[in-house]
Design a protein around this nucleic acid. Structure first.
Length: 804
RNA sequence: GCCCGGGUGGCGGAACUGGUAUACGCGUACGACUCAAAAUCGUAUGUCGCAAGGCAUGUGGGUUCGAUUCCCACCCCGGGCACCA
């Protein structure tokens, strides 16, 4: 008889022992072991740990523990991304101190994280809102500032006139402020920006060498959006103004109109008297829309300015229109329309009666006039040029180079490379963030706060109720501090940094978390960087990951970082949904509380359930299944009782299965396929319960289980008389000679349809396989009276007999 | 709209490099144990059919001896789109 599986006692006992003996703390000296740095995106301290946190942190711990047992020196750090808007919103709403709110949440979540039993090195924990941390965020910003990579510019924002604050797109619902319901405006605001676009080429090119899933790399390439084209300068009829259009396609002979953004600097000048009224109305309406509303609408609209530009190659007068699907900050804010080559342009031309000319002939060789949308030959299809003067007959693919040469030689335009990527705006008119360490002199010029005054502390005498002024502008202490240090007339910067700046370097701090002299020495970074696996959410694919790569490159260029790319492997994970298949939310009442599950079924059960749910590293959403987790608990109960099946004579089949299980679990962990690893262990335990297993096999199985059910495995390891700790034991190796079974069951197909199976040894020749098949009563029935015309035999796999 | 991903039993999913589709788990049904229930154990379980057999991996086509897997077109669902993190 064995004791009941008492998960609560076991968890408490071993979590304490692991903590007391600092089992998972690692030094920067690897003592000859291979280093491995495994990282998960650190959490925002939102209040309570939810099941998504478990999925994010407990499942990668399987890999961490397995690698440690495989003899590697593994760092698995944890921390908190503790600056951010939720703290401020909670503060405004409930009149709390955002600092108090944040740190109480951190305490609660730390306790919850510890209940997971992850093999975290807590001694390296960082919190981005700690002055010891953000002094280095400030230092980083100043390095960018001193290297002309941080500058004052402008960017468009959502503005709520009543709340007097900038809103995230998320806070704008149907064009209205989420909080107060006022109509949201779109304003251009002065802004601190980082020159990430200077690094655009390297951010694209360096992707090639990274071992990331190709779709993630592709998303980054598209986000950066490099396109090579030409800026064409157009003369305006009856005006001295020059209008520049960016284009990547060689269709100037078919360009019959120009569209400019409503906010384009020339909009007013190009609009003639009789069109002023309509243009004004249109421009005002478009100011109320956000980018997605402007570019996403199905039917494009526009208004005519009354002005014309002269087409260089045709001499024709092209009407200039204002349309909100053109954005001021994209390209030059003005585009030429070619209705014969672009469906959007075709719809626009048709709607407003603008002329349409075919300039590209597609593979269908249709040279007729274009009268319907499906005749439009779009970019990316093959084709040759027509009605295009010097380009006639040239392959579409070659025509752009010729156009660039021609336009440059005539002085009509010049080659440019443009990016969709914009500079990173980092200033926030918020309180709970890292203060930007800049002060302005009496002339209003920005200066770096000298190093000796870092950390440039966030003042606490602030009323952060939104008034239209950044909260820090209301701090007397900050003003006083500035005047005292820099003199009369000097003023502080009152914006704080985007939290993405905090998170763009935290992984470097983990290598040297206590250093007071530098953010992290190159020795410490050299010991751990680059990160061998970075686990996180798919929503970070383009922003956080790109920002972190950018910062890493900047530091590397300055000789302050050791590698140009921070993350060698990236794994994007999916989402855990409520039992009803919807995203968990309080309003839907479908939230699964992890604490409740852990208390009822145990941390190991929750961990294995999440790992078993589906493959990790695929961005799929999995509904929580109460029955499913009960099944996982049953599995662990059976593991708990497995000791009772240990006896001296282990059948050879069980031995062989164990070695195949070792092999499969080892390989699956490597590929983040924890679900099939668990399934393999279930298959083993099914057989072991039935046929019995040896003491040695039992212990080997416990080692396989250890990364998945760390508490239970540790307990059973002790019960089996082994010494602490199973997590420091050596990972089992599969005996290759036991991996392959002697005979294989192969399928026999008749005309491609499975009709039966035969038992053959792996090295059976086709002829004898055929003999066995013919002797098989059922299969023989299909061959009776037929002529065999062909036989496809793949040893160990299949025998396909084609008959007539 | 643009970019990325995904559609396999009642459910989560499995299937190596193109080779027996549905492993493993859940659920369900029946049986054993029990005064009874729960728990546990056993058996069955894609679908239609008494069976032989047919039909099934979102839909339609193609390549192949053979397609969940490769190619083309389409439909549906999820994520991202720059001040939530």
């Amino acid at each position: 008889m064995h004791k009941k599986f008492d998960h609560k006692t076991i968890e408490k006992k071993w979590q304490k022992r692991w903590r007391d003996e600092k089992v998972y703390e690692v030094a920067n000296d690897h003592k000859g072991k291979k280093k491995r740095y495994i990282l998960t995106e650190y959490p925002y301290p939102s209040g309570n740990l939810h099941i998504g946190h478990w999925y994010a942190f407990a499942v990668p711990d399987i890999l961490v523990r397995a690698k440690r047992m495989q003899g590697e020196h593994v760092m698995y750090p944890v921390g908190f991304d503790s600056f951010g808007l939720p703290a401020e919103n909670a503060a405004i709403k409930n009149k709390l101190d955002p600092k108090k709110w944040t740190y109480e949440n951190i305490d609660r979540m730390t306790a919850q994280l510890e209940s997971m039993g992850n093999s975290y090195d807590w001694s390296r924990a960082v919190r981005t809102s700690d002055p010891d941390y953000y002094r280095w965020t400030q230092w980083l910003f100043l390095q960018l500032f001193k290297n002309n990579l941080a500058y004052r510019g402008t960017s468009m924002v959502n503005w709520c006139p009543l709340c007097k604050t900038v809103l995230a797109n998320e806070q704008v619902v149907g064009g209205k402020c989420e909080r107060c319901g006022s109509e949201v405006e779109h304003r251009e605001m002065p802004q601190w920006l980082l020159r990430i676009t200077d690094y655009a080429d390297r951010l694209i090119d360096d992707l090639d060498a990274l071992n990331w899933p190709e779709p993630i790399k592709e998303s980054q390439r598209n986000w950066i959006g490099r396109s090579e084209g030409i800026n064409i300068d157009y003369t305006i009829v009856g005006s001295d103004e020059v209008l520049t259009c960016f284009t990547t396609t060689p269709v100037n002979f078919g360009a019959s109109f120009i569209v400019i953004a409503p906010e384009h600097p020339l909009t007013a000048k190009l609009t003639t008297k009789e069109n002023e009224e309509t243009a004004k109305t249109y421009t005002e309406a478009s100011a109320k829309k956000n980018e997605m509303e402007r570019t996403g609408q199905k039917e494009k609209t526009g208004v005519f300015t009354g002005s014309y530009a002269i087409n260089h190659v045709t001499g024709e007068h092209m009407p200039i229109w204002i349309a909100d699907f053109v954005l001021k900050d994209v390209g030059t804010g003005a585009v030429q329309g070619c209705p014969g080559h672009d469906k959007r342009d075709f719809q626009f031309a048709k709607k407003y009666g603008i002329s349409i000319r075919r300039v590209v002939v597609g593979p269908d060789n249709d040279t007729s006039d274009i009268v319907s949308e499906d005749q439009v030959v779009e970019k990316g299809t093959q084709g040759r040029m027509i009605n295009s003067g010097f380009l006639d007959g040239v392959d579409f693919a070659d025509a752009m180079e010729k156009t660039k040469d021609y336009f440059e030689s005539k002085g009509w335009g010049k080659r440019v490379v443009r990016y969709k990527l914009r500079d990173w705006s980092v200033g926030r008119q918020r309180y709970w963030g890292c203060p930007i360490p800049i002060v302005y002199d009496p002339e209003g010029l920005p200066h770096a706060v000298p190093d000796e005054h870092l950390p440039w502390l966030l003042p606490e005498d602030v009323d952060f109720t939104p008034t239209g002024e950044p909260p820090l502008a209301k701090s007397e202490a900050l003003k006083k501090r500035t005047v005292e240090i820099f003199g009369e007339g000097w003023t502080p910067e009152v914006e704080t940094l985007d939290t993405f700046v905090d998170s763009s370097w935290y992984f470097l701090r983990y290598t040297d978390p206590k250093n007071t002299e530098v953010f992290a020495t190159t020795e410490a970074q050299g010991a751990w960087m680059p990160i061998d696996a970075y686990f996180g959410g798919a929503e970070h694919t383009t922003m956080h990951l790109l920002y972190a790569r950018f910062v890493q490159k900047v530091l590397c260029d300055m000789g302050l970082a050791t590698v140009p790319e921070p993350f060698t492997v990236r794994v994007n994970r999916g989402l855990v949904l409520g039992p009803d298949g919807n995203k968990m939310s309080k309003s839907k009442g479908n939230v699964i509380d992890p604490d409740e599950q852990v208390s009822r079924l145990g941390a190991d059960t929750v961990k294995i359930y999440l790992a078993f749910m589906g493959p990790y590293g695929e961005v799929t959403n999995y509904p929580w299944d109460m029955g499913g987790i009960a099944g996982t608990r049953r599995f662990l109960e059976r593991v708990h009782g497995l000791g009772a099946h240990v006896h001296e004579n282990e059948p050879r089949d069980v031995t062989s299965l164990l070695h195949r299980t070792v092999d499969k679990v080892t390989r699956d962990i490597e590929h983040f396929k924890f679900n099939t690893a668990i399934s393999a262990m279930m298959i083993f335990i099914n057989a072991a319960e039935k046929d019995g297993l040896s003491e040695e096999s039992y212990k080997t199985f416990l080692k396989l289980l250890a990364p998945f059910a760390p508490h239970l495995a540790e307990e059973l390891w002790e019960t089996a008389g082994e010494s602490f700790s199973i997590h420091q034991a050596t990972w089992p190796l599969a005996d290759k000679s036991l991996l392959t079974e002697e005979t294989a069951t192969i399928a026999v197909q008749i005309n491609g349809k499975a009709r039966g199976t035969i038992e053959v040894s792996a090295d059976t020749e086709e002829e004898s396989a055929m003999d066995i098949a013919k002797a098989h009563k059922h299969i023989a029935g299909y061959l009776d009276g037929k002529t065999i015309t062909r036989v496809v035999y793949v040893p160990g796999k299949i025998l396909n007999i084609i008959v007539r």
